[in-house]
Design a protein around this nucleic acid. Structure first.
Lengths: 183, 183
DNA sequence: ATGTTACTGAACTTATTGTTCAATAAAATT
DNA sequence: AATTTTATTGAACAATAAGTTCAGTAACAT
């Protein structure tokens, strides 16, 4: 990819995440983005069809990065639900989130958009589906599969949200424990 | 309240819920609302400052109605977590939702707005907080209070969402059971 | 009957979106 | 090094929507 393209793309993403941490997605205008990114209006539209697509691509970058890192580590780990096991996928996820390399948490905070959460959930859902065979307990067999997956995903998202909204005082280990307790 | 005011207010609410069941909140314009409600533009703004306030007031009406009905029945019911008990608050909630008197479910469906969900959660949170003393189990005592409340509320919302998105094939009783199983 | 309040409709300003295009600068190709 | 391709620019443009204003009219209350 052209260096110029990479640079403007980066500039747009940076400006956009900055703005997202300050205000709701729906109130961010293209004008603000290009002003902060210091690029021309036409350039923005050369890269992204709409603001929605910008969010979509940003999410894809962030989440693919996050979930790919998980996928690398998942093979061979059986005790996904043993919170003492240092290789718990969920613990890894919480640790990655805590680092907050690319400001995922800013976006996850409650003032932000449903669209963003949808991408996060979709990524998680895939991850959980891949691991599902591992935790067939007596309890889970009574439940419809999609319901059960949905519940795990939702609980993970809401746990993370609670964590962020309360200042992330707890360690990833503690949060993983809380999460596994309620599951 | 003036009959004229009541009528236009009603007309606006009706037009708005109609539109909400068809498309996302963010894509609904004031123009569409007033056209469908058959009122003047200035009239709309005489009633509601913005589209956001319209949603806010609509939610307040719907949820106050819903949760007030619950409050009427809550006193004296101790076995809130016993799903066989016919007086389970959650069962009542699911039943009320199934009736869908005022199209809450249309609004709850996944394509709709975060703002709407926030009001729903707020109402639920209050309800759950009021009932919290009832279910102090060994499990729940280990958890931070706000985390636990949040978890119950989230699980209720997500259960309902799953129910709606899957066509509401299950009876309120079944859903209550699923809900209580994962809690 | 009179005064008050709510609705109307049309015109208007402002803000935002998304497009177009000719000019320019950077990258790739020969 | 010269040439071609590609990305960016900036400004102008049309289209849509938000929100305001106000004089005129209809409904309500006393």
């Amino acid at each position: 990819m052209d260096r110029r393209q990479r640079k403007t793309r980066e500039a747009i993403f940076n400006a956009f995440t900055d703005l997202l941490s300050q205000k709701d997605f729906s109130q961010i205008t293209v004008g603000e983005i290009i002003q902060r990114a210091d690029i021309g209006r036409a350039t923005f539209y050369a890269h992204f069809e709409t603001k929605d697509f910008l969010l979509k691509e940003l999410c894809e970058e962030l989440f693919c990065h996050l979930f790919d890192a998980m996928d690398d580590q998942k093979s061979g780990h059986r005790h996904i639900f043993d919170c003492d096991a240092p290789d718990s996928v969920f613990l890894h996820l919480f640790r990655h989130l805590q680092k907050n390399d690319n400001n995922i948490l800013g976006l996850l905070s409650c003032r932000n958009n449903e669209l963003f959460l949808r991408y996060f959930r979709d990524g998680l859902r895939q991850l959980v589906e891949n691991q599902l065979q591992i935790f067939d307990t007596e309890k889970s067999k009574k439940l419809p599969r999609s319901f059960f997956i949905n519940h795990i995903v939702s609980t993970f998202v809401e746990t993370t949200r609670w964590w962020v909204d309360n200042g992330m005082k707890e360690s990833p280990e503690t949060i993983t424990e809380l999460f596994l307790t309620v599951i």
